[in-house]
Design a protein around this nucleic acid. Sequence first.
DNA 1: CCTGAGTTTGACAATCATTCTCAATTCCGG
DNA 2: CCGGAATTGAGAATGATTGTCAAACTCAGG
Lengths: 130, 130
Amino acid sequence: MSVRMTRQREVVAAVLEAVDGFHSAQELYEMLLADGERIGLATVYRTLQLFAENNMVDVMRNADGEAIYRSCISAGEHHHHLMCRTCGKTIEIDGPTVEAWALQVGAQHGFTEIEHTIELYGTCTACQRG
Amino acid sequence: MSVRMTRQREVVAAVLEAVDGFHSAQELYEMLLADGERIGLATVYRTLQLFAENNMVDVMRNADGEAIYRSCISAGEHHHHLMCRTCGKTIEIDGPTVEAWALQVGAQHGFTEIEHTIELYGTCTACQRG
DNA sequence: CCTGAGTTTGACAATCATTCTCAATTCCGG
DNA sequence: CCGGAATTGAGAATGATTGTCAAACTCAGG
């Protein structure tokens, strides 16, 4: 029942801190192996899920529907992302506007416990040249 | 290069029209078989992708990252969804507010060609009882 | 109503992400 | 330091999706 701190969980947290942007479980697993860590793929998956449940990481899905993770910058705070479709650069954004809009639309249709996923994609300044 | 009309494409379009809500390629495939249609699973996948590219169907991803499809009610129009997390009932919504917000946020960060995905989840009136 | 070139199909293999299994190992409160 | 609960890991299993390629089909032209 209680959650334990293990070497594996520490190193997963560590890579997440060390790298920028979003990465899949597979990618993170490979990075760990490259760093010489001994850890199983299943453990990486389980750990990421655990972190996600505790809002310790950001989760989103790439265009292929794969889960990608990133250490949460505004830990625990709800926010969204603006990602460059060319270089993958990601900016964290928050939007009182949309939050309010989401709640309102939900309420209008009699829905409660509204949650939402909002992701923006575009081409960043750097990638517009070239 | 040219797109042909085939029996298979017709029946896929037909089930999409016949059923409500979003369904995975697998589900649609099974419905077709149940209807006595002769069609291959790969064909269902290919057909759905084709339809999606032509904006003839709505695509979204469920919580597991699987692609789910629905015949496009407001054909070709850009819109979003409000889905009941219990019964899967889905309502189509549009939001000038968020559209504008998305563009503005993108521009603020120097991003162009902004696209976005927005999905709302909640509990519908019916599912709140019980 | 034929025909041929180009499309599309389907059975099945192949990928690939993710989850499951379960014995062996590791944590940690007492 | 101990014991039981939590966690791990190797590999199998699952399941969605895509690739392969010969056979079947469509349709514009004759």
